[in-house]
Each structure stands twice: as C-alpha cells, then as structure tokens.
Design a protein around this nucleic acid. Sequence first.
RNA 1: GGGCUCGUAGUGAAGAGGCCUAUCACGCCUCCCUGUCACGGAGGAGAUCGCCGGUUCGAAUCCGGUCGGGCCCGCCA
Length: 434
Amino acid sequence: MRVLSREAKDHVGKKIEIQGWLHKKRLLGGLTFINVRDRSGLTQVVIKDKDQVEKLRGLQIGTVLTIEGTVIKEERAPGGIEMHDAKVTVVVPVEDQPAIEIDKPISHKSDNLDTLFDHRPLVLRNLQETAIFRIRSELLRYIREFLHKNEFIEINTPKLVAGAAEGGAEVFKLDYFGQEATLAQSPQLYKQIMVGVFERVYEIAPAFRAELSATTRHVSEVTMLDVEMGFIKDHDEVLDLLQDLVYEILTRLYKEYPQDLKRLNAPELKLKPKFPRLSMAEIHKLYQKETGTDVSHEVDLAPDEEKWICEWAKKEHGCEAIFATDLPASKMKFYHMKGEGNVAKSADLLFRGVEIATVPQREHRHDNLIKQMKDAGVDPKSPGFAAYVSAFKNGLPPHGGFGFGIDRLTEKAIGLANIKEAILFPRDINRLTP
RNA sequence: GGGCUCGUAGUGAAGAGGCCUAUCACGCCUCCCUGUCACGGAGGAGAUCGCCGGUUCGAAUCCGGUCGGGCCCGCCA
C-alpha cells in the first residue's frame, strides 16, 4: 500500500512503501540521503546498503522510484521523520541529464523566461513552480466557492463563434467547414443571454486575443472569470460583489498558504474590506498634482498611472486594490450603460499596479441597446447578434458583471513580474509550443 | 505596429580588438567522505562565442545583414 509523504509521520516505527520521483541525491560515503517527491511533498530516505545505493548510479533527477522502508522519528531530518533500511525499486529510470536543475529555485529573470518555457515539463516540477500553480488552483477554488455561496451558476459557452463579441479587438480567424469562424475573445453576449435564464451566472474559460502586444501583462490566450448578475439595484452593487470576492479570495490565500507565498517571496498583503473608489477624473487630478505630468487629455490610465495610483491607495488607505470608476464614454462598448455626463457606468479594478477586471453595468433596455449597436457599426440583425438581441426582446432585467483576468490575479497575488510565469503553457505572439 | 535592448558549454553568468589554447558557478562523469538538507574535498569531460558577410596583420569583442529572445509604448484581462 502506497503511503504519501505527508502521511509518513503517522507510521513511525512501521514499514511502509512510498512512490515518487527522485528529487535530490546526496552521497556521503557510507551514508546516502535521497529526497523523494510525490504530490504531497518530499520524504527523506537514508540508505546505508551499498547495493541499494548502487541501483541509483547514473540515474538522474526525475527517476520514478518505489521505496520500501521503516519510518523513523529523527530530529535532524526535515519534517522530523525519515525512512531507514530502504529497499529501492527503479520504476522508470531517467538516464539523460535534465536540461534544467529543479531542486533549487529557478531564476525568473525576464531574459531567461524563454528557457523556462522551452523546458516547461521539467521546470514545472520545481517546488517553487508547483507552488505557483497550487496557488492558482486554490484561487480558482475560492472563487467557485464564493460564487456558489452567492447562488451563481457555472456555465460553459462556445469558444468557436461566428463574429467578434466586442468590436475593435483583434480576433483569431479560422476555417469552420468552409465558413469563417473566430475564437471567442469573451463570453460577453452569452453570459448576458444567460442572465435571462439563471439571473446569476459565471464562467471560467479561455479567451483568445490576437492583439500584437508584447508586454509583461499580455498573452494571446487568457483565462477569464466572467460573471454576470441580474436584478441589480445599481452599478455599485456589481462593484460590491467584485470587491467582496477579491477580498475573500486574497485574504483566504494569505491565511492558508503562508509557506508557499513565502517561498515565492510574495509581498505582504494590504487589503481593506472596502476598496477606495475614485473616478478616472479624480485619479488624473491626483496624479497630475503629485507628479506634474499632464494627463488631462488622456482618456485612459497609462501604465505608469495605474502603478502610481495603486501605490497611493496602499499608502493612503492601506489597500492594494482600488476601483477607477466613471470611465470615459468614448471608451464604451455598445453593451455598456451610459452614465451621467460623458462617462460610462463602468469601472476598472486595479491591484498591485495592473488592471485585473473591468466592471460595467449593461444597457438592458432593448431600444437603447439597438441604438448603441448601430452607433458602434454593429448590425443587430446579423446572424452573430440576432439571438443576443432576442434575449432583450424577451426580457432582461437590469444587470451587470465583470471580466476578470485569472492569470493577472495569480501573477499579482504572488507578486510575480510577468503574467506568463503564472501560466502553465503560455501563448504569446512568439510562442505556440509547448 | 513603433521605440529600445540582448544572443558565450546542459543552465546561469564574466570577458568589450592581441594577455582567449575563452573564465567562473551550478549541473554531469570518476574517486574520497556516516547526518546531509544550496553537503564538503580531489580530478575530468563538455562551447565551431546564434547564423552569414565585411573591416583588420589579428574579431567572442568593431560594422552590415539575418534569425531568435527580452523590455517599454499603443491596446487590453
């Protein structure tokens, strides 16, 4: 019967069998230490028998092993226990030298990220890397638990679609049995349709962006959390939902995974239950006053301004998350709701210097929507939009939601420098493999 | 799409016209070592310095081209 590394401590004095990968060998003459890695962690095995040590000669890190031995309580061992009188069985020998060393932290310097991604199958076995993706998995679990608690239904919508959901952004085109199709850049239209069914829905799925962006915060395949909620009182209710979600998942992460976050040198989390909310105009004014940079003609926040306002919120409010509200109407999508004056009922959530979500209220009134579609150059009668429009004809309540970048969230939750470090197999303008 | 940068053993770095027969660390191979946990010690193998061309008596080093990366801007999650 196989025992996992984390359970070995419950078998002191007993003979057990563990299985895993050879993670590290240390030969001290008459005494050999090896670390065996399994899904639950590492176990230290002490081997004295020359014949057993000899079985590992020439075998590299990654060799798959079964070890039989007796669990001993030992102060000097990491974790307080180790295995003695080990009988080694090589399940799968690895003889070629691995391209990357995985038993110590790997440099994430931007110049070398390419090597990290080229050797992904191996690199991901590094304990530091596994910590990143365990955290990502837990964040997704927290999100699902929060949304489930709030009666949201998880949906799945098509990624092969006929037209672009959001006019403007670049899409990937492909041949669909002789017809032109695109890869969905957002489930926007579908999730709004689904408000008419379940009121509250969400989806966690890839979104495809063909933009020629080459930065530390862009990839061409992103994992998006898309949430949509019906019967809202006002735009603030949507902001509250996102705020509560982010507050809960981040505080939970920092409470439950302090050791992994420390291993990854994550910064200390500073968050308040109520995030500051400043209008875009107010942020421009503050930024201009503090830095002297004239941004009065900018419609959007420049990357530097995003970083600056996050630092400001951390210093002034002790909160690393901040809402930029009242986004300019000129940046509105046709399905957004217009606000008072020249602004949209839309906000961005900024966290640790980067935009991680956009939170608009939707235009739910059929006639207004049609007008906004036409103004945006979208034909409401075209096959790609007819079904969408019919959902409004058949009654959609006031609703709003958000698109939330899971990759950026993971990156920033840990304090990584590049979004790609938070993605198992990242896709960008130069990378389609592995 | 625009701008700026970088390519040297398996990996990470040093070398900036001759001192390079290219240096160091980690890894790998051989040997020594009974408490390692970034083990330690001795020895060894491994690089046509991304590629092509040019300048020069002489190029890893200078110039041009090319291929492959990275960062920033625009745009966005």
